[in-house]
């Protein structure tokens, strides 16, 4: 009888150890995701950049879009001004809290949208779509160690757990030593690969590390790809008047 008790106790111990072991592993990855998020956050600083997008479409060809971006408090206030294509030059999107204005320079008119309004009659709000966080919007399903190019990486599998998540499942490749996200795969609900995102270039901006070159590959349409690069990046203070309708109008004169 004593022997049976002993075996049971050992089994419980092994089980408890394995559970704790897993929990510790996940905690380590959770901490890693938190650090990545902190490092790319611009909570108390302004941020500006010139964003270049090259859209490759197998049918439409290549299109270049250049947007100037000004942002404050992680996008609580932002202004996007289109510089290219020339036909759309000056079109702007200005956000201030729950208000979003769109500006058309050809008519010099603003159209207003409230971010408080429910998104297409769903339970989600427009504002829910603004911020996405790996740490809070996803839970870790598992991870493994592997290699991407010459870098040793963690390959972390995530599953959405909040409405803020943009995709149901994703897999991210994070360098083990420098903790940089190099690649993300986005999956649909039935685990079909929809998009692959590559982050081949980073830049140090103040205390932050941000990707300045990104490639988004549409896995559903062969040959469809967007590359995005950031230049003229700055975290210097942006004057308050930049986040106003008057500025958007004046800068277009």
């Amino acid at each position: 009888m004593k022997r049976i008790h002993f075996v049971t106790a050992v089994m419980i111990l092994i089980l408890a150890w394995s559970v704790v072991g897993y929990a510790q592993d996940f905690a380590h990855i959770e901490a890693l995701l938190d650090r990545i998020e902190q490092r790319s956050s611009f909570e108390n600083t302004d941020f500006s950049a010139l964003v270049n997008m090259i859209v490759e479409d197998p049918e439409k060809g290549i299109e270049k879009i250049v947007v100037r971006q000004f942002s404050r408090n992680n996008g609580e206030k932002f202004l996007l001004l289109i510089q290219e294509p020339v036909a759309n030059k000056g079109q702007g999107h200005l956000r201030d809290g729950d208000s979003l204005w769109m500006y058309d320079p050809s008519s010099r008119k603003f159209a207003h949208t409230s971010l408080k309004e429910n998104f297409q009659d769903s339970d989600a709000r427009n504002s829910d779509f603004v911020v996405e966080s790996y740490a809070t919007s996803y839970e870790i399903e598992g991870y493994e160690e592997g290699k991407l190019g010459n870098f040793a990486v963690y390959i972390v599998s995530l599953a959405a757990q909040s409405d803020n998540a943009s995709v149901p499942y994703s897999k991210i490749w994070i360098t083990k030593d420098t903790e940089l996200v190099l690649k993300v795969e986005e999956y649909s609900l039935n685990r079909r690969l929809m998009r692959t995102n590559l982050y081949p270039k980073y830049a140090k901006v103040g205390d932050n590390l941000i990707p300045v070159q990104m490639i988004f590959i549409d896995e559903l349409v062969a040959g469809q790809k967007t590359q995005m690069s950031l230049s003229e990046v700055s975290t210097n203070d942006i004057p308050d008047h930049v986040f106003t309708k008057a500025y958007v109008e004046r800068v277009n004169r």
Binding site: L148, G149, L198, P200, Y202, K204, V212
Partner: peptide
């Protein structure tokens, strides 16, 4: 994609931070 991730120095851009 593998060719993007060969050298650590290449991961960092010379992008101007103005």
């Amino acid at each position: 994609e593998e060719s993007f991730f060969t050298d650590f120095d290449d991961l960092f851009s010379s992008v101007l931070v103005d």
